[in-house]
Design a protein around this nucleic acid. Structure first.
Lengths: 235, 235
DNA sequence: CTTAAAGTGTTACCTAGGGCACACCCGGCT
DNA sequence: AGCCGGGTGTGCCCTAGGTAACACTTTAAG
């Protein structure tokens, strides 16, 4: 019982710190928490069933999961987005978009809270502040997606790779975070290309002295040089 | 005065028919209408200033406009989306996303209503039903964008072009609508490629007897053949 | 009517990057 | 230890599609 209480308090804190719940009363958060169940997916296996996602609304508490599509024609997958703590999914199912084969897969130990859709919808109607935050959240997702298509269309792969690295780099140490433990295959799925091409360019960066690579570890050795790879400010 | 009244009634009707206003009371719609001003952009010129979009929220009444980004590096533009009647923009500015150089340009005579952002935000807070519809609207936009990136990464240009044509085709007559009056340049911007490549493939389709082309007019002569161009259902 | 500008059809060229193949390396398992 | 599987490092080959260049045609403007 004590343990239960402690977990409950932990989830409560987590929600409280999530900008999505800004302006939402403690009472409402409590009410929502009473509707949730939790699920822990241990590393790298838990492919969330579409039947789940179309009946539940999920909150990411800890961990990391990818949302991806799979193309049978050329046996490739494309990661639409990486979900991290404070993310939610799927807004699509919440508002009944068209059917689409999107897969969810955890990349490490991941803790989720989930609410049945009808209850979530109902709760949402009573909490306008959450709606407003959710819209902001969605607006940002839209912007990110727009950036993706722009990048994919306009930039070549070294550029996209450099940007990806830069975005996930500790600005001080140059150490790559979040995506350091991903295989080249996964990195390829993130920027829309294949394993071998990713490898090619990573090694190119390495040869240029931009990058240092070890097992599950990458560090940018020259941030300026990395920047030059995507800052095509042709003066 | 009479004319004014008539226009007012016309806008009222337009909003009433817009699914975004589903569940919104006539009073609220009226209230919103009192905050709006209208603007008509005559054909193909009206590039809406970013300062406008970051201070106003727009409703498309009639016409068509494109939202695009421009890449100086290779002097190309990419159309992120085509806005048609019942669309709104920009949700980004409404919820304060990051700055981004996105341009708006009308493609034909276009009639817009617009509201200053603070007033719109205020009105939004009082109309939760509109928020819910707006979220659905945004969810659909997200889905469309996700489809875009998937297509761009996974499919080649003939396939993307065929899909575009199919989506804008009158299912009975095979006549291409909406995008028939666009130049090859504009079509290229829609599917993420260049004028001459578009031209190449359009003529290829023509040679295959899939397509018939005249001035500002295209018609699919064999819908099955067109489908075969993107239905890679390899038996 | 004349001229400019925008759009089209078509060529030739060239390179980024997808596909495939194979050898290697390392970590985990029995 | 030995094996196996997932992840690498490289190579080569080949084609889709980006680029540039030209001529021609249609529309818009003066």
């Amino acid at each position: 019982m004590n343990v239960e209480l402690e977990r409950y308090r932990y989830y409560f804190e987590t929600f409280l710190n999530n900008p999505l719940f800004k302006g939402v009363s403690a009472d409402s958060i409590n009410e929502l928490l009473h509707l949730t169940k939790s699920r822990v997916c241990t590393n790298r296996t838990c492919v969330i069933d579409t039947s789940d996602t179309s009946h539940h609304f999920f909150f990411v508490i800890t961990g990391k999961l990818k949302v991806y599509v799979y193309d049978t024609k050329n046996d490739r997958q494309l990661t639409l987005t990486l979900l991290v703590p404070q993310d939610v999914f799927s807004v699509m199912s919440l508002f009944g978009g068209l059917k689409r084969k999107v897969y969810y897969e955890t990349l490490e130990r991941t803790e989720l809270l989930y609410v049945p859709l009808p209850e979530m919808k109902n709760w949402l109607k009573k909490n306008h502040d959450f709606s407003l935050s959710l819209m902001k959240y969605m607006a940002l997702k839209i912007q990110t997606l727009e950036n993706s298509v722009t990048n994919i269309v306009m930039e070549d792969i070294p550029t996209r790779l450099a940007k990806l690295l830069y975005q996930n780099m500790d600005k001080n140490t140059g150490v790559i975070q979040h995506i350091n433990d991903l295989s080249h295959d996964e990195i390829g799925a993130l920027i829309g290309t294949t394993r071998s091409v990713v490898n090619r360019h990573i090694n190119f960066f390495k040869d240029q002295g931009i990058l240092e690579v070890k097992r599950k570890y990458m560090r940018i050795t020259s941030i300026d040089a990395l920047k030059r790879e995507f800052d095509h400010s042709r003066v």
